[in-house]
Amino acid sequence: MTESSEEPNAVDRRADPADTDDAADAAESASDTPPSASRTATDAPDSESESDDLEALRREVEETYDFDDFGPADMAEMSLEEWEAAFDPGTWIVGEELLDRVEHELTARVAIREIFAVVERVSDGQDYVVAYSDEGYAVVYADGSVEGEGTVLRDVKPTVALCSMESYDLMEFPADASLPEPEDIVEGSGEFGNLMLQVVAGAQIVVGLGLLIAWIALPSLSTVVAPIAALGFLVIGFFLFLVVANARLSDRFRTEEFRNRLRALDAVDAPRPDVSDRESTAGGTADEEADT
């Protein structure tokens, strides 16, 4: 990586032995977030012997652990030096480039509606990417650490992990990638399908009733098939009408619910919603949280 000048902290931390706990924590959570605390010797190959030592250690690690079948127990067994030798943190993307990638990827995921959030790039002193909705937020820092709460955090975490990998190609997104306006959500889409289903249901009901009446009225029609078929048609017709009624009713509630959620998102206009901010704006949800 070339952005090491962006974060002088990283070099400091490498020299600071008190920070090893920090690094170990980062290593343990490596499956979620890239180990952020340190850059290894790849940045500064000062002496030949040091890199030779590293090579030897790396080979030793390769022999000791079976990385095809690597689990948490092996991970716990590893010492920090072994870990750093085996997993070169230089292979993770961090810094400015990570934030660019995360912002791009999150926008694309919002565009395909996989994540429900507003994505913003904030730079007041420190650069970071914020994604928030009415139900939570996530802040991605340049070193790859993520903090936040709620469903947004859960959705953002894997994105950050993906974006920190060189081999991951970012998704493309259309020009208008943001969430829709509340007014753009119209109910009654698919009404034509409902109409067709009603036609089918109506025909089934008419035929069912007709068959039942014919079976009672016509003496020539004495077969037991007639009432059974009539009952079958009536059941199918009733079921189809039920399907249409359910579709319309749930559609009405869902559009209203989704509009409310988008409005709640509009109301959160502070660039970085902290806890007090969220509680004052998203009033309904705050009440619910108080109940639980």
Binding site: R113, E114, F116, E135, G136, E149, G150, T151, L153, R154, I185, V186, S189, G190, F192, G193, R254, T255, E257, F258, R261, T285, E288, E289, T292
Partner: peptide, 20 residues
């Protein structure tokens, strides 16, 4: 996490029918 209890039923995505 999501287990706070207040997010159930939240609509995460609502895309109108395609109706091609």
């Amino acid at each position: 996490m999501s287990s706070s209890g207040s997010t159930y039923g939240d609509i995460h995505r609502y895309e109108p029918a395609r109706e091609s």
